[in-house]
Computed example of a mutant assay.
Amino acid sequence: MTPQHGSSVRVMNLPWQITVTDEQSLHVFDLDIGRSTLDDGVKVLKSEYHLAWFESQDGTLSLEAYFFRVSMSGLRAKVILELDSTGLEKEYLLQHSGKPEVQTSRTIKYPLDDLAQTLKDRVIRSLTYVPLTNLEPALLKSRFGEPEERIVVNDNSEYWLYPKKGLLITVSKKSKKVLQYIPVGEFERLKQSIVATVSHAQQEKTAE
């Protein structure tokens, strides 16, 4: 059917189309962050993905699904889903893990693709969106407004915080912008992890 003259079609699933459902749920990219599962993410994102778990220096475990060919509303991107890891024992994960890799952040990454089906009902805790097209700061401000807070990393990068939107944007002069979505009730957890990361990096630089 040919659209009538003057009609308009609203483009869906754009990065700035966020709906805060409640303290524990955020709707973006046709997913309810805080309620939707990995299986929901697979159906919506329609991309190949890799599953992995990470162990930080303090022993904390995290679980992520990395989708590397996502295309939504004409925008191509990479998407990372942080999944709920509650109840997962380290020994169980090690039994099903691939070869470990040490990350630049000094965390250890363990491939976990063999458990993709087993963990498909794990709830999405946060979503990280990395557009392949570099979104300019001026465009981001026009869509999201001025950030409520900024955390400066160095002369080249900083974090923009939008706690009422459940959004954190990493702005860098040398790399692509990164948008991270998290339920507003969980935003403080994300902020504190950023503060700790920045503090650690600055301490290491001072010690050099």
Rank of each mutant, 00 (worst) to 15 (best):
Y162C: 03
Q57I: 08
T21E: 12
S25M: 04
P111D: 06
L51M: 13
L38Y: 02
I124Q: 04
I169H: 04
F67Y: 04
F29L: 15
T37N: 11
P3L: 05
E188A: 09
L135H: 04
Q95T: 11
E149F: 14
H27M: 12
Q4T: 10
P131M: 06
Q17Y: 02
S126A: 09
V198E: 00
N134P: 00
L140W: 07
V102L: 11
Q57L: 10
Y129V: 00
K191T: 13
E23I: 02
P131S: 04
L139V: 14
D32A: 08
T37I: 13
T118Y: 06
L83W: 04
L139A: 10
Y92P: 08
P147N: 10
K78V: 03
Y159S: 01
L75Q: 07
V198K: 05
E48Y: 08
G98W: 10
G41D: 09
G6M: 03
I151Q: 02
W160F: 06
R76S: 06
L135E: 03
A207N: 15
L14A: 14
L190H: 05
K46N: 05
L167H: 09
L94H: 15
K205Q: 11
E64N: 03
G6V: 02
V171F: 06
R106T: 13
V171M: 03
N154V: 08
T206F: 08
R35P: 01
K141M: 06
L190N: 06
L38T: 05
A196R: 14
H200K: 12
E91S: 13
Y129P: 00
F67H: 09
R106S: 13
P147M: 08
W16I: 05
K205R: 12
I169Y: 01
K164T: 12
Y92E: 08
V184L: 12
S8Y: 14
L45K: 04
S142T: 13
S199P: 02
A201D: 13
K205T: 10
L179P: 01
S73I: 09
H200R: 13
Q180V: 11
L168G: 07
V153A: 15
I33Y: 01
R69D: 04
E158T: 06
I33N: 01
L45N: 02
T133G: 05
R10W: 13
I124P: 01
L132D: 09
S73V: 09
S172C: 11
S193V: 08
L93D: 04
P100M: 15
T118Q: 11
A201F: 11
Q4L: 13
V102I: 12
L94Q: 15
V153Y: 14
V102R: 07
Y162P: 03
I169V: 14
L88A: 07
D40Q: 01
S172N: 12
I80R: 09
G145D: 07
P183E: 02
E64H: 05
W53P: 05
L179F: 05
Q180W: 08
Y162H: 11
P183S: 00
E158N: 14
D84A: 04
F29K: 10
V42R: 09
H200G: 01
